[in-house]
Amino acid sequence: MSDHVNGAAEGTVANKVPVTITVNGRTHRADCEPRTTLADFLREDLGYTGVHLGCEHGVCGACTVQLDGSTARSCCMLAVQADGSEVTTVEGLAEDGQLHPLQEAFWNRHGLQCGFCTPGMLMTACELLADNPDPSAEEIREGISGNLCRCTGYQFIVESIQEAAPKMRPAT
Protein backbone atom coordinates (compact mmCIF):
# COMPACT_ATOMS: atom_id res chain seq x y z
CA MET A 1 0.00 0.00 0.00
CA SER A 2 0.99 3.61 -0.31
CA ASP A 3 2.05 5.26 2.89
CA HIS A 4 -0.65 7.90 2.98
CA VAL A 5 -4.38 7.37 2.64
CA ASN A 6 -7.12 9.93 2.82
CA GLY A 7 -9.74 8.59 5.22
CA ALA A 8 -12.65 10.83 4.37
CA ALA A 9 -13.10 14.53 4.04
CA GLU A 10 -16.38 15.80 5.48
CA GLY A 11 -19.28 14.25 3.63
CA THR A 12 -17.27 12.33 1.07
CA VAL A 13 -16.72 8.65 0.73
CA ALA A 14 -13.50 7.41 2.27
CA ASN A 15 -10.66 6.08 0.24
CA LYS A 16 -10.01 2.50 1.01
CA VAL A 17 -6.69 0.92 1.77
CA PRO A 18 -5.62 -2.46 0.46
CA VAL A 19 -4.55 -4.73 3.31
CA THR A 20 -2.81 -8.06 2.86
CA ILE A 21 -2.89 -10.33 5.86
CA THR A 22 -2.35 -14.01 6.54
CA VAL A 23 -4.99 -15.52 8.81
CA ASN A 24 -4.67 -19.09 10.03
CA GLY A 25 -2.26 -19.76 7.19
CA ARG A 26 -4.38 -18.32 4.39
CA THR A 27 -3.39 -15.02 2.79
CA HIS A 28 -6.17 -12.50 2.23
CA ARG A 29 -6.19 -9.19 0.46
CA ALA A 30 -9.07 -6.78 0.96
CA ASP A 31 -9.72 -3.06 1.00
CA CYS A 32 -10.85 -1.20 4.08
CA GLU A 33 -11.16 2.30 5.46
CA PRO A 34 -8.25 3.49 7.61
CA ARG A 35 -10.61 3.68 10.59
CA THR A 36 -11.54 0.00 10.39
CA THR A 37 -10.21 -1.95 13.36
CA LEU A 38 -8.48 -5.26 12.87
CA ALA A 39 -11.40 -6.88 14.70
CA ASP A 40 -13.99 -5.48 12.32
CA PHE A 41 -11.79 -6.35 9.33
CA LEU A 42 -11.42 -9.96 10.47
CA ARG A 43 -15.12 -10.29 11.20
CA GLU A 44 -16.80 -8.26 8.50
CA ASP A 45 -14.41 -8.42 5.58
CA LEU A 46 -12.76 -11.81 6.02
CA GLY A 47 -15.51 -13.72 7.83
CA TYR A 48 -13.62 -14.73 10.96
CA THR A 49 -16.63 -14.29 13.22
CA GLY A 50 -14.98 -16.30 15.98
CA VAL A 51 -13.38 -12.96 16.85
CA HIS A 52 -15.91 -11.45 19.25
CA LEU A 53 -16.49 -7.84 20.22
CA GLY A 54 -17.46 -7.48 23.85
CA CYS A 55 -16.44 -3.89 24.55
CA GLU A 56 -14.47 -2.33 21.67
CA HIS A 57 -12.37 -0.47 24.21
CA GLY A 58 -9.70 -2.93 25.16
CA VAL A 59 -10.96 -4.26 28.47
CA CYS A 60 -12.91 -7.49 27.97
CA GLY A 61 -10.41 -9.44 25.86
CA ALA A 62 -13.02 -11.26 23.76
CA CYS A 63 -11.38 -10.05 20.53
CA THR A 64 -7.92 -11.37 21.45
CA VAL A 65 -5.98 -12.91 18.55
CA GLN A 66 -2.38 -13.91 18.00
CA LEU A 67 -0.53 -11.36 15.91
CA ASP A 68 2.92 -12.30 14.68
CA GLY A 69 3.35 -14.70 17.57
CA SER A 70 1.97 -12.81 20.55
CA THR A 71 -1.51 -11.91 21.69
CA ALA A 72 -3.13 -8.63 20.71
CA ARG A 73 -6.55 -7.12 21.19
CA SER A 74 -7.88 -6.79 17.70
CA CYS A 75 -10.23 -3.97 18.76
CA CYS A 76 -7.19 -1.88 19.76
CA MET A 77 -5.49 -2.07 16.37
CA LEU A 78 -6.34 -0.73 12.97
CA ALA A 79 -6.52 -3.20 10.13
CA VAL A 80 -4.00 -1.14 8.16
CA GLN A 81 -1.49 -1.67 10.94
CA ALA A 82 -1.72 -5.40 10.46
CA ASP A 83 -0.84 -5.20 6.78
CA GLY A 84 1.72 -7.91 6.10
CA SER A 85 1.11 -9.65 9.45
CA GLU A 86 0.27 -13.18 10.39
CA VAL A 87 -2.79 -13.62 12.55
CA THR A 88 -4.19 -16.66 14.29
CA THR A 89 -7.81 -16.61 15.40
CA VAL A 90 -9.78 -19.21 17.33
CA GLU A 91 -10.75 -20.75 13.99
CA GLY A 92 -7.09 -21.64 13.52
CA LEU A 93 -6.62 -23.58 16.75
CA ALA A 94 -8.06 -26.93 15.76
CA GLU A 95 -6.10 -28.80 13.10
CA ASP A 96 -7.23 -31.58 10.79
CA GLY A 97 -10.52 -31.87 12.61
CA GLN A 98 -8.76 -32.40 15.93
CA LEU A 99 -9.49 -29.99 18.73
CA HIS A 100 -6.52 -28.20 20.26
CA PRO A 101 -5.65 -29.54 23.75
CA LEU A 102 -7.04 -26.36 25.29
CA GLN A 103 -10.31 -26.71 23.40
CA GLU A 104 -10.56 -30.32 24.50
CA ALA A 105 -9.85 -29.36 28.13
CA PHE A 106 -12.38 -26.52 28.11
CA TRP A 107 -14.94 -29.03 26.82
CA ASN A 108 -14.08 -31.65 29.45
CA ARG A 109 -14.02 -29.22 32.33
CA HIS A 110 -17.00 -27.04 31.41
CA GLY A 111 -14.69 -24.08 30.90
CA LEU A 112 -17.34 -22.18 28.97
CA GLN A 113 -21.02 -21.44 29.19
CA CYS A 114 -22.30 -18.93 26.63
CA GLY A 115 -19.00 -19.14 24.76
CA PHE A 116 -18.74 -15.45 23.96
CA CYS A 117 -15.51 -14.86 25.89
CA THR A 118 -14.15 -18.27 24.92
CA PRO A 119 -12.21 -17.41 21.73
CA GLY A 120 -10.28 -14.66 23.50
CA MET A 121 -9.84 -16.80 26.59
CA LEU A 122 -8.37 -19.63 24.49
CA MET A 123 -5.94 -17.33 22.68
CA THR A 124 -4.78 -15.83 25.98
CA ALA A 125 -4.43 -19.28 27.55
CA CYS A 126 -2.28 -20.43 24.62
CA GLU A 127 0.20 -17.64 25.25
CA LEU A 128 0.04 -18.11 29.00
CA LEU A 129 1.02 -21.77 28.71
CA ALA A 130 3.73 -21.00 26.18
CA ASP A 131 5.26 -18.48 28.62
CA ASN A 132 4.67 -20.58 31.72
CA PRO A 133 4.17 -24.30 30.98
CA ASP A 134 3.29 -25.25 34.55
CA PRO A 135 1.34 -22.38 36.10
CA SER A 136 -0.27 -22.40 39.54
CA ALA A 137 -3.97 -21.65 39.86
CA GLU A 138 -3.10 -18.17 41.03
CA GLU A 139 -0.82 -17.58 38.07
CA ILE A 140 -3.57 -18.74 35.74
CA ARG A 141 -6.03 -16.35 37.36
CA GLU A 142 -3.54 -13.52 36.96
CA GLY A 143 -2.84 -14.56 33.38
CA ILE A 144 -6.48 -14.52 32.30
CA SER A 145 -7.45 -11.47 34.34
CA GLY A 146 -7.50 -9.41 31.16
CA ASN A 147 -10.33 -11.56 29.81
CA LEU A 148 -13.74 -11.00 31.33
CA CYS A 149 -16.15 -13.90 31.63
CA ARG A 150 -19.64 -13.21 32.96
CA CYS A 151 -20.88 -16.81 33.03
CA THR A 152 -18.49 -19.24 34.64
CA GLY A 153 -17.09 -17.61 37.75
CA TYR A 154 -13.72 -18.62 36.21
CA GLN A 155 -13.14 -21.74 38.31
CA PHE A 156 -13.72 -24.24 35.51
CA ILE A 157 -11.65 -22.09 33.16
CA VAL A 158 -8.75 -22.31 35.60
CA GLU A 159 -9.23 -26.09 35.84
CA SER A 160 -9.40 -26.38 32.05
CA ILE A 161 -6.09 -24.60 31.62
CA GLN A 162 -4.56 -26.76 34.34
CA GLU A 163 -5.77 -29.86 32.53
CA ALA A 164 -4.35 -28.71 29.20
CA ALA A 165 -0.98 -27.62 30.57
CA PRO A 166 0.77 -31.03 30.66
CA LYS A 167 -0.50 -31.85 27.15
CA MET A 168 1.00 -28.67 25.78
CA ARG A 169 4.35 -28.98 27.50
CA PRO A 170 7.16 -29.93 25.16
CA ALA A 171 8.31 -33.47 25.90
CA THR A 172 11.43 -33.43 28.06
Binding site: G50, V90, L99, T118
Partner: peptide, 12 residues
Protein backbone atom coordinates in the same frame (compact mmCIF):
# COMPACT_ATOMS: atom_id res chain seq x y z
CA UNK B 1 -23.16 -27.07 22.82
CA UNK B 2 -19.42 -26.77 23.21
CA UNK B 3 -17.71 -27.80 19.96
CA UNK B 4 -19.30 -24.99 17.95
CA UNK B 5 -18.52 -22.46 20.67
CA UNK B 6 -14.93 -23.63 21.12
CA UNK B 7 -14.03 -23.50 17.45
CA UNK B 8 -15.47 -20.11 16.53
CA UNK B 9 -18.26 -21.73 14.54
CA UNK B 10 -21.11 -20.46 16.69
CA UNK B 11 -23.41 -17.84 15.22
CA UNK B 12 -24.25 -14.89 17.43
Amino acid sequence: EDPRLLTGRAQF
